[in-house]
Nucleic acid binder design. Structure first.
Lengths: 343, 343
DNA sequence: TTCTCTACTGTGAACGCTCACAGAAGCCGA
DNA sequence: TCGGCTTCTGTGAGCGTTCACAGTAGAGAA
């Protein structure tokens, strides 16, 4: 009745069926399934061929019920969800994590905690043990979800350095400070001295670090920090436009601009074009992220590449290790300067 | 040993614990959990308070083991994965589906079938019954995954009209043809008569339909179709640029341009700017999608809004109905013209 | 009173798997 | 020959639920 028109899925074969076909017991099949230690080559082979013959796939629910593991992990985004639209990096990270987990045959559950309700629902879901661990994207400080999960003892890896540095928490991040240093050094090497900066949000470590790198290099080069050349943004395109406009009005002699994200840099390019400045002739512009959109604009953006594929791989690696009982770990990965038309 | 530093997750309470605290039996607790029919108000209340007291959350694995349902659904993308980066619509859809499912307390598993290996792995996973149904994004024709899943009797809902129209398959789509008609009508109403078009890929129904709408309206208005004004693209930004360039060379008198996606429209704007055409003074440009990026460019793009929130909600609704045994259903949702600066 | 019906409750079995344990077989050294 | 070891295999129990069934209590009808 219920199955009337869905094509009538047949009952899938169980470990019992495989055992029968292979002429062995459940236990032996189970051992083959889980690494195959203490199994004779003959049994091994018989079981494998029975699996192929029957099309057997393990029932993960039955397995989870007894092992206590769910063999799935959650990808949790607690940022306000406009970020999901605006930030191309998010896509790359999500894809990378999904694929890295797929290599371990672990499904990824996507969780979006935008509202307070969702936050509660998801926290309950996770702490109830429905996932073995969580990949967390939440750069802003004082995130209650992160704290709650940590207290509940849920294995956790954050993307990006978390704000409260005291707690023993795993994270994987690009070397923001070093990336910023590279970019500003590059701008200096072009002979620019009046270098403006549109920072990221300064309540996030990424924003703080990139600004710190900027200041460090200028100071090392003997260029005085001019606060009129510093304006803060929030990684959104609009804030890039606004930031560049403000800088142009405060320091019309600006000859270079370091923008802490590509998306903001796109906005800044618009502002510069409107103001009649040529890029890179009048003003050199450097971004951060190396997001796909940046590559395709005009002029193509010189930027700092974040190694997203490595970041996602490391996040998964660290999380699985943590689930396996290892200590919290911090991984910081190097960035790379990518020269294009805007400098 | 293994749990050394993960905070030591405690064993969560079971239905048995709840029953004991509430002073009833497992069965009664289970009944309360599943709708609460045939349960006295007193027992109802006792169980609920026991659940609160113990912090009980149902063990989905145990439930799934017996019900045969997994109470989770898969979101499957079989497009080549660059699409994931380029297309902002994908994000909106993914978010919408995740939230719509969250309202039903159903987790979403993200599945990316880029390579042949992943394809096989995922097909096995799904047909093994690890998800109850699949939300499928796969516009290109002849997708083997879709066909395999359908044959296996897996409940399926596609986003966008599938190419092989014969099969009985559920889908949810925006009314591409009608949207295109609206846009071309709008361009005609501005007095434009030499209206070019950059189509979507013509092996997808969306691409075909949007072109059909364009031709219909022109014909109705008594404007002859000039094939020099028709060029095909693939929804990528680059193909928008190339398409507009080709049109300009073939028909320099073009006074309007309908581009079948916002991303391509962005590319087309670049080409027009390079060619010295002013938008909208010399050429009116209309896009399709109403993606966030389009809103923020200069000039802001007049476009056709696809109702992504409704699309994702409908996809989930139709899929759950299909899982519940209902027939395949096709849902076509209306689009909306959004006027901005480019026309 | 007795019978039937409805509303509610408890219980055993089963879902498909892993784990611990017991046992068998083969080999080697005493 | 015996005992002990290693390697391999089968078996029962149990994970936390739901489901079917049996059973109880109370209300209303005969």
């Amino acid at each position: 009745m219920t199955m009337s028109n869905t094509g009538g899925r047949r009952k899938p074969p169980t470990i019992h069926d495989v055992a029968r076909v292979a002429g062995v017991s459940r236990g032996t099949v189970s051992r083959v399934l889980n690494g195959g230690h203490y199994v004779s080559p003959a049994a091994q082979e018989a079981v494998n061929s029975a699996i192929r013959k029957t099309g057997y796939v393990v029932n993960r629910h039955a397995r989870s019920l007894i092992t206590g593991r769910s063999d799935s992990i959650g990808f949790l985004l607690t940022e306000p969800q406009e970020k999901l639209f605006e930030d191309p990096n998010f896509n790359v990270l999500l894809r990378g994590c999904t694929q890295a987990l797929a290599a371990h045959d672990i499904p990824l559950l996507l969780m979006l905690a935008g509202t307070e309700d969702e936050r509660r629902r998801i926290t309950r879901y996770i702490t109830a043990g429905h996932v073995d661990g969580v990949l967390l994207v939440s750069s802003h400080s004082g995130d209650p979800v992160a704290e709650e999960l940590r207290e509940a003892g849920v294995p956790l890896v954050q993307c990006g350095k978390p704000m409260g540095l005291g707690s023993k928490v795993s994270y994987v991040a690009a070397d923001d400070r070093d990336g910023a240093r590279d970019m500003v050094r590059h701008l200096l090497s072009l002979g620019r001295r009046r270098i403006g900066v549109v920072t990221g949000p300064l309540d996030t470590p990424g924003g703080v670090e990139r600004l710190a790198g900027y200041k460090e290099v200028l100071t090392e080069a003997g260029v005085a920090i001019d606060e009129r050349l510093v304006v803060s943004g929030d990684y959104s395109r609009a804030s890039g436009t606004a930031g560049a406009e403000k800088l142009l009005s405060r320091a019309p002699d600006m000859d270079a601009l370091f923008v802490a994200s590509d998306l903001m840099a796109q906005g800044a390019l618009t502002a510069l074009r409107r103001a009649g400045r040529r890029v890179p002739e009048d003003v050199s512009v450097g971004g951060f992220d190396d997001s796909p959109a940046a590559t395709e604009g005009t002029p193509a953006l010189t930027t700092i590449r974040q190694p997203w594929d490595r970041i996602s791989n490391e996040m998964v690696r660290v999380l699985l290790a943590r689930i396996g009982g290892e200590d919290a770990a911090a991984v910081i990965l190097p960035t790379e300067l990518v020269r294009r038309e805007s400098t």
